[in-house]
Simulated assay, not measured.
Amino acid sequence: MLQSEKAYLAAFVYSLIIGFSFMFTKLALAIASPMDTLAHRFTISFLIASIPFLAKKAQLNMNYKDLIAILPLAILYPTLFFTFQAFGLVYISSSEAGIIQAVIPLFTVFLAGHFLNEYPTTQQKISILLSVMGVIYIFFMKSSGLEVANLQGALLILLSALSAACYNVLARNLTKRYALYKLTYIMTMIGFITFNIIAIIQHNIDHTLSYFFAPFGNQEFLLSIFYLGILSSLGTSFLSNYALSKLEASKMSVFSNLATLITIIAGVLVLHEKLQYFHLIGGSLILIGVIGTNYFNTKKVVNQ
Rank of each mutant, 00 (worst) to 15 (best):
F115P: 10
L239P: 03
V270P: 08
S253I: 01
N303W: 10
T83G: 04
G283Y: 08
I200G: 02
Y8A: 02
L27Q: 11
A249Q: 02
S233E: 06
L269A: 13
A7P: 09
A7C: 12
F12V: 02
M189D: 03
S15E: 01
A86M: 15
V270G: 11
S210D: 13
F46G: 08
F221G: 08
A154F: 04
S233F: 04
F87I: 14
G113Q: 07
I225K: 03
I18W: 12
H203L: 12
L67M: 13
L158Y: 01
L146T: 10
L180F: 08
M141K: 14
I198N: 06
L54N: 14
A58P: 00
A58M: 12
A30D: 08
F42Y: 14
L106N: 01
N150M: 06
K182G: 15
G292A: 09
K182N: 15
T121Q: 14
R172W: 05
P34G: 09
A28L: 09
V132G: 00
M252V: 03
N218Q: 11
E248H: 14
S160W: 00
A49C: 11
L29W: 12
S233Y: 03
L223T: 10
N204D: 08
L2M: 04
Y64A: 11
M1R: 06
A199R: 04
L71G: 08
A199M: 09
S94M: 03
N257L: 02
F84N: 04
S210T: 13
E118P: 04
F139I: 05
A102Q: 00
G153T: 02
L223C: 06
L287T: 14
L174N: 04
I286C: 07
P52S: 05
T184D: 03
V90T: 11
T43C: 05
Q152K: 14
A28D: 09
G134S: 12
A171W: 02
H203S: 15
K251W: 07
F296L: 13
A69T: 14
Y119Q: 12
T122A: 13
T260A: 07
Y181E: 07
L239H: 04
A149R: 03
F221Y: 15
A243F: 06
N297K: 15
I104G: 00
K26V: 05
A199P: 09
N63A: 04
Y14R: 01
Q152E: 12
K246F: 03
K176T: 13
Q101A: 05
G153D: 01
K246R: 14
V135C: 06
K274W: 07
N196M: 11
G19K: 08
R41Q: 09
H279C: 08
H207G: 04
N303K: 14
I190M: 12
K6E: 07
M62C: 08
G191W: 06
M252N: 08
L222K: 13
L116D: 02
F107N: 03
I100F: 00
L67V: 10
F140L: 14
I198C: 11
L280S: 13
L269Q: 06
A58E: 12
M189V: 07
K251N: 15
Q59P: 01
A102Y: 01
I70V: 12
